[in-house]
Write a protein that binds this DNA or RNA. Sequence first.
DNA 1: CAACTGAGTGAACGTTCGTTCATTTTGTAG
DNA 2: CTACAAAATGAACGAACGTTCACTCAGTTG
Lengths: 198, 198
Amino acid sequence: MLETVQKTTDLSARERFVTVAAELFARNGYDGTSIRDIAREMGVTPGAVYAHFVSKAGLLLAVYKTGVERISSAVDEEIHASTDPWTNLERACWRHLEVLVAENGFAKVVIRVLPTDIEEVAGELTTLRRQYEERFRRLIDALELRAGTNRNLLRLQLLGALNWTQVWYRAEHADLADIAHALVENLRRGTEIQDGDA
Amino acid sequence: MLETVQKTTDLSARERFVTVAAELFARNGYDGTSIRDIAREMGVTPGAVYAHFVSKAGLLLAVYKTGVERISSAVDEEIHASTDPWTNLERACWRHLEVLVAENGFAKVVIRVLPTDIEEVAGELTTLRRQYEERFRRLIDALELRAGTNRNLLRLQLLGALNWTQVWYRAEHADLADIAHALVENLRRGTEIQDGDA
DNA sequence: CAACTGAGTGAACGTTCGTTCATTTTGTAG
DNA sequence: CTACAAAATGAACGAACGTTCACTCAGTTG
């Protein structure tokens, strides 16, 4: 399949659909958002959606892909930034939070919509999620941990805490960098008072 | 309003509706479950639901109430069981996990269905959730923590990790008591290797 | 036996859903 | 100016949704 002729056609129309869908899926969920809602927000009729996407599930898949892409590249910027693996982990968490609770809804959809709930694309969605989470596996592999620590569980514990922020975080809360720092520090040093603490 | 005559009518019919609804809401979500699905599972026609509940949202509210009740009473059994507050917290987490990933779907619904998604009962659902989470506030208040530790964030971090298990936990995983122990221990002592560790 | 009650029926209601498609509009290239 | 392709229309499709309601039916109760 040659691609000698690059697509000069407007990609931004499709992209605008994806952006609008991401916002609505993030706010109201997949089932809570109708094709008509998306069309209305775009200022077009429902049929127009199907000039760009094969189905509603296909549109969700496009949103998911972009969401994973964005949060992945944000985290990738930090993954080897420092020589201290704990610092790298903390920065990755910070970027994860930033993308997750930032104004645009792409990453929110990835966390909010459970892959298994949309049967038609469940496999693809699961794969995309795994792709992203793999980064945290590597970040945690780089840590020197107490003997017997279950790294897999630690990863899930951290991701759980991070993703749950979507439920409670409001803009008036503390800075995201502070939250990321505290979450990682709690898991690094522990929270119990120690002999010798001030 | 006197209640001199106790209700001798069959409560178990209503309760069976709630149980079936809990299972389906937990498995397929609120939007993903229709009144017809619930009726079919009960072996009745859709209209029968409205002899017991004012609306679908009302049925969800009943499920939520039972869910919060069950997980609350399970956690309450452990909340003051020991004189060591860390032990109490760990046991509470263990019971939380048990109820959450156990076979019946009541507690799953409480975690899976976001109160804000069902506008008609959003206020009530939020209140019920808060009631439950209050228990963890008290459990964490009882801990002696390093100076400067944000107890509120610690609570959210722990609840996030606990509730996220719903996404990844499968029966073949480690024992829930072990998981609860590890999650709390990670936050208590930290996971970083220390001088003097074996 | 008659009156009553609560549970359930079965069919229908109005609405909304995802999706289709022949047709029109729009924009670009020869 | 013409030709072509992409984008969007607008109306409609069948299906599924939550909900209603006059009714039957079974099981107490006096």
